[in-house]
Nucleic acid binder design. Structure first.
Lengths: 339, 339
DNA sequence: CTGAAAGCGCTTACAG
DNA sequence: CTGAAAGCGCTTACAG
């Protein structure tokens, strides 16, 4: 077992001081070409690589980004991580990922942990519980300590920082408008509980679209789902007890479940009922029929978030707190689930 | 902006030495209860948290695990990360994720980077390119330096280390056997190029099942797909030019694509052709018809891999290199795509 | 041109 | 009971 070689080893072996070795390897002109080359050759031979932890401590920057997300199994979040990773790598950053599992406590613990020196800045999306509690002290604390934070998708107005979002309200509006244009008037909505920020915004977009077309809002065909794991039953009830000719679902899970339920009840999609989902993920693409959906480009969101964070980290001056909110554009991907 | 407080600050403020502060906070009995409590109170008030980077340097362990995987967008890999995360967290470890994008070079760069002090050990799955090149020097190097590595799913016999796999060969055998039991004799195979270890093993299982039932292997209904992105065309050709009554696909993408192709060509699944996939992911579950598949429990694999790594990290003695290979059991999930 | 010293933030064996 | 010193692996201002 060949232990990692350090400056100390090299110095001893070559009978020079550690400073000289360090300077030689950084090509300092202070050092004679002679010793410089000698040291460099030796270092190369023994495959010397500086210890990044030592550098982090010395430089007070780690070149790593902390990501805190509710779930990694959601395709959308995986997509965002991928987007972050690629930009981060390009700029020489690594990425450390923590999952909050939609829990406030885990979100707090993870943030505090990472904030103690492990990373230079955060990219995060709020857990459901955090959104429900509206307690963001852990985030403002981190920001107060001078650590930049970029929030994406599930954000809050209560915290001032850089943000990357889509216009959920507008995107939903457009999706519903699309259905209205096709001549549908009875459009059901399958959404989440209001405290999930994006669900709420998408619900508002739905309402706005109906209103602006003078279609009355009918609460009996608006389904707010609490327990996502068991959404099938709730959706089944909706289909059994109400009639409508189109459905707008605020995520792809609800959309695909609606299709399955419709099929079971002998309804054909899109002939009997049209369905539009949200988030252009793997499910929408491979469902049969494939699902018309609002595409929400996670890669792009991740890219942007990483770029914003790194820009802030690397801008020398402490920027006079000029926070930006980037809106990533969405568009409707028409597939088989709508007429 | 309130900067993070350090031992030094506290020491100065309380007019004691740094050593005293450190010992007080670690509850050393060396220190009088008086000062101990005083220091602790002060630290609590100012929300002191030790700098983890400094601790890492001092202790020569970082309490973080490096994960290197080909892709995060594959549901299976996301699932494994999730499994790793949860066990890691339980034991106080963080997780740093790097993507190789199926590229040998990126895999090497990422490993070298992380090996320079950032992590205590690796959990990884080989990139396709690495499997093709059969060049594993970066891995043996890391192991030589005394850093433990656990490989999962895409592993190699050329490296001695802990491994977590499923019995791909057996699982495929059982899946195909299931089809044979249903009375099918013409069973097509949709698989990957041979250098992908798991694809190869699954192909072998397929062959074994046929042989053991005296069914001749017919190369014209074995499709080896090179370009996964554009597998539709290849699968279409298979369906157009050959006849068979069942399909075994080595991943869920191939399985769902087969279903879509069959539908387009007017074939009904499972009435006209039965289909079995591999990996029990989101696609299999939400496809219509939902897909009968070999479940490959990524969460469990991740849990196990993390446990093995942490065990090795925390076992005092340098274990006399007794490496284990854990086989996670699979089973067939019967759904709608088979009769 | 080279090296000793100080420092990043911490811990701990040792002296007093 | 308290603190100075050494050390983890590095960098850099300063002396010589």
């Amino acid at each position: 077992m060949r232990r990692k070689v350090t400056l100390k080893h090299i110095a001893k072996e070559l009978d020079v001081s550690i400073s000289t070795v360090s300077k030689s390897l950084r090509n300092s002109s202070e050092i004679s070409e002679d010793t410089r080359l000698k040291v460099q050759a030796f270092a190369k031979l023994y495959n010397y690589k500086p210890n990044l932890i030592a550098l982090s401590l010395k430089n007070k920057k780690t070149k790593t980004i902390g990501i805190i997300i509710p779930e990694i199994i959601h395709h959308f979040f995986a997509t965002v991580i991928s987007g972050i990773e690629h930009v981060a790598n390009e700029y020489g950053y690594n990425v450390i990922v923590c999952l909050s599992d939609e829990s406030f406590d885990k979100e707090v613990i993870n943030m505090e942990m990472l904030a103690n020196g492990s990373i230079d800045g955060f990219i995060m999306s709020l857990s459901k519980e955090t959104q429900l509690k509206k307690d963001f002290h852990h985030i403002s604390e981190v920001i107060n300590q001078g650590m930049p934070v970029v929030m994406f998708d599930r954000v809050t107005n209560d915290i001032l920082c850089d943000k990357v979002i889509i216009d959920d309200n507008l995107a939903a509006y457009e999706a519903v408008h699309h259905l209205i244009n096709k001549g549908f008037k009875k459009i059901a909505l399958i959404t989440t509980i209001d405290y999930v920020s994006v669900g709420k915004l998408r619900t508002e977009g739905y309402s706005k679209a109906l209103k602006s077309n003078d279609i009355p809002i009918n609460d009996s065909i608006i389904l707010k789902i609490e327990d996502i794991e068991n959404c099938t039953e709730a959706i089944e009830n909706l289909f059994k007890n109400q009639t409508f000719d189109a459905v707008f679902a605020v995520n792809e899970l609800f959309a695909v479940t609606a299709i399955k339920v419709a099929n079971h009840l002998g309804l054909k999609v899109p002939q009997d009922v049209s369905i539009i989902g949200f988030t252009d993920g793997i499910i929408s693409k491979y469902s049969s029929p494939s699902i018309t959906t609002v595409s929400q480009n996670g890669i792009k969101m991740g890219n942007k978030a990483a770029k914003m964070l790194i820009d802030r980290l690397e801008s020398e001056e402490e920027e006079e707190e000029h926070y930006k909110t980037e809106v990533i554009e969405t568009h409707l991907v028409e597939r088989e689930s709508t007429l």
